[in-house]
Each structure stands twice: as structure tokens, then as C-alpha cells.
Amino acid sequence: MRVAIAEDSVLLREGVAQLLTDAGIEVTARCGTADELLTRVAADPPDAVIVDIRMPPTHPDEGMQAALTIRKKYPDIGVLVLSQYVEVGLAMRLLADSAEGAGYLLKDRVSEVKEFIAALRRVADGGSALDPTIVSTMLKRRRSSDPLDSLTPREREVLELMATGASNAGIAESMVITQRAAEKYVSTIFTKLGIPASGSESRRVLAVLLFLRS
């Protein structure tokens, strides 16, 4: 897998590059600005990019703009956005059209090496990775006659994992259950929440997000 990095902090940029190299991932570009990233991606399209959302001293949403540009111009390139803060508003913006090949994680998730690499691979393969903080924040919202109340605690756990972009296999592994059991949970949840079941794992991320947001 080939990945380009855009991160203004040298320390972090080199750290992430090291992390990727150690995991056998090729780092095609190490960029300090969003413009540089766009240039390098155009010259040598990677499988995925890792973008810091806020790269001073220029515009504070330059990283986000670059991420949106790449998603539009190169639908095949996975875009993983990193940020010191995760904002539901920004997640909705990033995933406005689809959650395919898109991820949005807190920056310090990079230190959870295995999970981070897994998320990156998922995004590069067209899947999704949404920070659990966002999902749990959205789940805290109260709604009148909330269908979420009808979920069992286990089902809620599955919903959270599903919303972060985990595959059925990933859910099974996290919850230490069989993949069939995971699939069954997923379809029960969809029925209870009234969300039409859709095949793709990243499509269901958006479906769940839109449900949670409503």
C-alpha cells in the first residue's frame, strides 16, 4: 500500500512515516502544507492520504479543503483526516455524499498502532473510519420517542462499532462473537431503527450517521 502524508509538525510527520514504514506501507510523500500534498498526489497518486485538518500558519481549514478536493478529484484515493479535535459538523461535511474511502480520526489514535493501521487500510480499500468519540457523542443525543431506546446494550455496542466503519468481521472480532452473530445483530438493528439494510459496509456508516444526526 502507498500512502502520502500531510502534517505540519515535523516530529509527528516523521513519527507517522516511521509507523507506516514499520507496518510495511510505502510513504510516497511527506508534505508540510496542503498545497504540497495536492501537487504530490497529482504527480504520483497513492492509495490513501493522511491529512492534518489544521495546518498553520495558513488558513485553519486548509487541510479539510485539500481532503475534500482529493475526495472529489480522486474517488479511488482513500482520505484519512486527522485532527486534534473531532467535530460532528466536520464529519458530516467530509462524509456529505458518501462514507466510502473516508476516515476522520483524533490525532492521538496514531499511537494505537494496530487499530490505526487497520483503519488506514480500511479507508484505502474504500471503507470508512470514524472516530468512536464522534459516534458516542451522537449517541448521547436525546430524541423524542427515540428508537435507540429499543436497542439492547449489545446491539448498541454493535451500532457504535458499525458507525465507526468496522466491518462485520471487525465487529465479530471486537465483541468476540462469530461473524454470523455479528451479521444477525446488524440486521436486527437496521430493522429496529427502520434503516434500509444496504450491502456495503461504508454505505451503512453514512446511513447510521444520518440516522443519528436526524
Partner: peptide, 24 residues
């Protein structure tokens, strides 16, 4: 609220509302 200066009031308010334990 860096998200306000970075991404605007609408985005920031969406996050704010999402984090509010009320029906907003």
C-alpha cells in the same frame, strides 16, 4: 472554539448541537 474560526459557525454549531444531550 477553533472550529468556529476554522470552519465557520454553521459547522461549529452542528458539532455543538450534536454534543448537547437535548433534542435540538
Amino acid at each position: 472554539p477553533a472550529v468556529v474560526s476554522g470552519h465557520g459557525l454553521a459547522v461549529a454549531l452542528e458539532s455543538l448541537v450534536a454534543a448537547t444531550p437535548l433534542e435540538v
